[in-house]
Design a protein around this nucleic acid. Sequence first.
DNA 1: GCCGTTTTCGGCCCGACTGTTTTCAGTCG
Length: 574
Amino acid sequence: MDLKLEKKEIVNILEEIGTLLELSGENPFKTRAYSAGARALEARTESLAELIESEELEEIKGIGKALKEKIETLATTGELEYYSNLRAQFPSTLFDLLKVPNLGPKKVKALYSKLEIDSLEKLEAACKEGKLEELDGFGKKTEEKILDGIEHVRKFSERVLYPVAEEAAVPLLELLKKQRGTIRVSLCGSLRRKRETVKDIDIVVSSKKPEPILKAFVEHDSVTSVSGHGETKASVVLENGMNADLRVVSDEEFPFAVHYFTGSKDHNTQMRARAKEYGLKMNEYGYFKEDDTRIGCKDEAEIFSKLELKEIPPELREGRHEIEWAEKDELPELIDYDDLKGTLHCHTTASDGKASLEEMAEAAAELGYEYFGIGDHSKAAFYANGLDEKRLAKQIEEIDAFNKKHKEIRLLKGSEVDILKDGSLDFAEEVLSDLDYAVASVHSIFNLDSETMTKRLIKAIESPGITFLGHMTGRLLQQRDEYVFNMSKVLDATEKNGKWIEINANPHRLDLDWRTCLEIRDRGILFIINPDAHNTQGISDNRYGINVARKAGLTKEHVANTRSLKEFLSLLKK
DNA sequence: GCCGTTTTCGGCCCGACTGTTTTCAGTCG
């Protein structure tokens, strides 16, 4: 089936239609139906062609007759009149205005229709001239807030990588923990769900006296401005540009508030719907019967058990399969942070690493790993000082010598072999046969057409000397999109040849994405979590890879390097 | 626009906070 648009592109268009409908003042539920439909489509792992051919689109919850037809029209023709008509009503630059905090569709529409403001520049000028005060519902304070907001959007419009958010959250959590009136503290939001990128930091505290806790929060050293400060909640902007929200509730309410603010939105919606089936109303303060009697719960586990659900780990709460799993007692026992017994794909000073082979090995041993795979670049990665056959042979000798001397950790001989443009490898098979393992990666020529790139990857994964593909999609979070290829076909080849798939744990990559892991798991393909470390600290990045695996719902059985050295070596032989 | 073992029509989550109001609309999470 030949499609004009990829699934991702259609998801984006549906989202955009949702926003455009908001701007045009449509029924909010209709608006929501488009963004809900977009998310529902995105969550499916099947390719769009499969969904259309098998007539399954309309089976997806959140996609009805109208959306099905629009999706199919977009997929087959690449166009949709309904969409282009909507787009013609508003300039696309209005989307920039929506990014300004406290500016929503209603206000943006008023700005556009009454003052012809359609860009951040025009908005800024109008604020400075005091023009906004002419409009109903706008005043001096709004103008000031908008000016601050424009500044903020220009500086920090992006979400930040998980480790950046985590680093900013830790001191706040510590501050809150040591406040006198604090009973319990929990990180919430996407940071608690271990998303790969995070927009703001959400924290919930339980206490009998909220005021002093809120005060301590807004006065913390890392706070540069206070954007809201009420009786039970406060919002601040941190010096790294992130927003942080604190909510203070009573201790009885705490588990509900924590669950509520952990989200995701979709997960919460599904939980509330389920609560309703049990005759309960659910909000951030508790369960309520129809006569408004409150039913308390001591912790999150009890919140779930009241609805006959097993406790769902925060990482899984994305509104995908978790409630179904919890209902059937089929929640996977998620892989844990100390389950990795070894790791591969690490660099040394031989190529572009910053630490020597010995330093890297010692650091790995200190982390408790039983085995550690060196994987320096091959000669085509010339920008990274890749090794040629001669230098690789020398490194193999060094590794043999190291293993003779050291018993605390076993070094594995390996290489990160470049996949050349035509899919052939940078080293011949006889060179690879001297190694314990080899990871094949694309490091150049990303802009091939889908068919060529797919063939390229398949040819690499079919090579006998290759153990797994490294960072398979090539994405760099917030920097570079995945290259275009047919993942299904590459996975077919991976499965057929008994190869593995890497979860690259570098926080800039996190490649694979957790959203696609489930399909791979169900094919029976093994994963391996590697840090792609270029220095000794980088080895610990594996915990971000574990985040991905947990979000995907993987257990340790699904991940090759949870095996002991002995088991791992026999896996490699296969 | 979607959805339904109380419904094919009438619901669709809802509370805190802010600013501009003089009782509430808009935004956010």
